[in-house]
Design a protein around this nucleic acid. Structure first.
Length: 592
RNA sequence: CGGGGUGUAGCGCAGCUUGGUUAGCGCGCCUGCUUUGGGAGCAGGAGGCCGGGAGUUCGAAUCUCCCCACCCCGACCA
């Protein structure tokens, strides 16, 4: 039992000024956490209780799946990370430090290297595999911008597991086992989730899916179908490619003067207002135009190559999608100086006529996949103040290939079923990766097969953000009055409020009730504060968010039929329960 | 790293434009009395390097410069 009269807790009446997102505000106001460092939080008793509950559930589900728990240091030497090149690839997000001898160390952002090395250390036979081991550990990442309370911190708790298999089928089985375990886990946490296909990014490897909690405060943008269950990270969305159209009978391309139209908006206004250029049946829209955007692609070896991307005029280039397509190269803006280097590019009037490796600019030209043969476009004529109408793909121009770099819009076509997709935001709560042999090869992990030949195991890695999950659960369940935890996560099963003065019968009754409830195996938070007014106790109970609130008050003074009030935090429904059946009643609520 | 905003008591804020008593207010905290079914009342009290440093000035929370921290947007990001 926890008595609030001596609980290390101070609830706040006002919102902390530095907290913007709801979960952050309420976790601070309810006395669960305190900011202690940039991107770092201290856990207070109630918060740590909830944290341990989330951690326990994660652990139980991992163990239930047959995975074995280990624990590694967070402070690590850099050599293994140099061997996989991640010491460089992680860049400024890696915390680096030196010991007293000047030797380099890092604070681990994730542990692929150490798990791989430990397997190498202990195992050497195919008979030992498959293997899945995991840990729940504090991770460190020097985030450029910690934000949103517990949702993005520089020090956070994460469950990370690693699978080691002999072949692709084994990896797929380990991956599927994690996927299934995560589904059970998030359902037990009562955390809504969407599984989206993702790109593996800097982790290397092939297949990868993210578990997102679909909440507006999430930082990840994803696409989901309004009809089927398709969902994907915005970087990983595939654009359905329309069928090519016939070139027969299409009007010829014509160059027209379109003065002062360097932007899509001015161009559309111009062609709609010029009687010679108007569409016979309707207004032209930005979607009738072909926008050509030039960027620089910086390769890992330092060389820079210009790249032109052709997309529908009503879309922007999505830098995340483009970046994911050209990885590991990086995208940089095309500067005024760059334009001077390429005089054939008339800024604001760039068209396919000069783009492409075989044309005047020599710049590689990639098209959005929707721009199939037979589609007609209004686009730049490569002379200032001129555009060309009816320029037809496959007839008047051919690009060097296609690229998925256009922004995804609400109402785009689902690649799975053809219905509309919508854009949503989510908090990344889990991520599963098929890594392949990148780490095993770099660290020379091999085992002997049945013919005594060395083979390289194939790996997967799988993460769940424990502290982030806690924040996501708070975010998903809170209401205007405060937090509202699922029972298994909550810091207690019951929040018992004494509505009576010191020495009143309510105090004795509450003490007796609490003892009985504890004997029945329920976790009780008892508000026995004598100085706090009843209003404060009610407000604090709702703020703290224990799922069931029990009020020992005037009802017990009824000699004929003494009662105790039971209130459901989420619904607000209250009910007076006879004193002689209260324990049984509460057990049935808490342990259905 | 770019843009914007904010730093004054444990928390939330006013004061700064136009420099000038002892830097205020609400909540919280301490003492006493009253109160007890929805953030109680009265009375008394404690608590401030006004983010840090340098400068201007007879005098700086207030003006100038530099730095730091935090929040938001973007870049970044398993």
């Amino acid at each position: 039992m926890q008595r609030m009269s001596n609980l290390f807790l101070r609830t706040l009446r006002d919102d902390p000024s530095d907290a913007e997102v709801q979960s952050h505000r309420l976790l601070v106001r309810a006395g669960y956490i305190r900011r202690a460092a940039p991107g770092g939080f201290s856990w207070l008793p109630l918060g740590y209780e909830v944290f341990r509950n989330v951690e326990r559930i994660v652990r139980e589900e991992m163990n239930a799946a047959g995975f074995q728990e280990v624990h590694f240091p967070a402070l690590l030497p850099i050599e293994p990370y140099q061997a996989t090149n991640r010491y460089e690839e992680y860049g400024p997000n890696l915390f680096r430090l030196q010991d007293r001898h000047g030797a380099d160390f890092l604070l681990a952002p994730t542990h692929e290297e150490m798990f791989t090395l430990t397997v190498k250390d202990l195992y050497s036979s195919y008979r030992d595999l498959p293997l899945v081991i995991y840990q729940i550990q504090t991770k460190f990442r020097d985030e450029a911008r910690p934000r949103a309370g517990l949702l993005r911190t520089r020090e956070f708790s994460m469950k990370d597991s690693y699978s080691f298999d002999l072949d692709d089928a084994g990896l797929q089985a380990s991956y599927d086992a994690h996927r299934a375990a995560y589904i059970k886990l998030f359902e037990r946490l009562e955390l809504p989730y969407v599984i989206v296909s993702a790109l593996s990014g800097a982790m290397g490897g092939s297949a990868s899916e993210e578990f997102l909690a679909p909440l507006p405060v999430g930082e990840d943008t994803f696409i989901r179908c309004t009809s089927c269950d398709y969902a994907a990270n915005v970087e990983a969305v595939h654009t359905p490619v329309p069928e090519p159209r016939s070139l027969d009978g299409l009007p010829a391309a014509m160059v027209h003067d379109t003065p002062k139209t360097p932007t899509i908006a001015t161009l559309v206004a111009c062609v709609n207002s010029d009687p010679a250029l108007r569409h016979p049946d309707r207004d032209w829209t930005a979607a009738d135009t072909l926008k050509n955007v030039v960027v620089n692609i910086k390769h890992p070896d330092g060389t820079v190559e210009p790249l032109a991307v052709g997309i529908e005029g009503h879309r922007e280039v999505d830098m995340k999608r483009l970046g994911a397509q050209v990885e590991p190269a990086e995208v940089e803006p095309f500067s005024e100086d760059d334009f001077k280097q390429h005089p054939s590019l008339k800024k604001g009037y760039i068209g396919p006529g000069v783009l492409g490796t075989n044309n005047e600019s020599g710049i590689r030209y990639l098209l959005d996949p929707r721009i199939v043969d037979g589609t007609q476009w209004i686009t730049g004529a490569d002379q200032y103040n001129q555009h060309v109408l009816h320029l037809t793909a496959g007839r008047d121009f051919v690009a060097d290939g296609t690229i998925e770099a256009a922004e995804v819009l609400d109402g785009d076509t689902c690649p799975n079923c053809g219905s509309d997709v919508e854009i949503a935001r989510g908090i990344e709560i889990g991520h599963i990766f098929q890594l392949g042999t990148k780490y095993a090869e770099a660290l020379e992990l091999t085992v002997r097969d049945e013919n005594d030949q060395p083979i390289t195991p194939t790996m997967g890695s799988y993460g769940v953000g424990v502290s982030r999950c806690l924040a996501a659960i708070a975010e998903a369940t809170l209401d205007d009055s405060g937090l509202c935890w699922p029972r298994e996560i909550a810091p207690a099963d019951l929040h018992v409020i004494i509505a009576g003065k010191d020495g009143s019968p309510q105090v004795a009754a509450a003490d007796e009730l609490t003892a009985s409830l504890e004997a029945a195996g329920l976790r009780v938070l008892l508000d026995d504060r004598s100085k706090a007014s009843l209003g404060v106790k009610f407000k604090d109970a709702e703020l703290i968010g224990v799922p069931t609130i029990v009020v020992v008050g005037r009802g017990i003074a009824n000699d004929d039929n003494p009662t105790i009030e039971v209130k459901d935090r989420k619904t607000g429904e209250r009910e007076d329960i006879a004193l002689d059946s209260i324990v049984e009643h509460l057990v049935s609520i808490c342990r259905p």
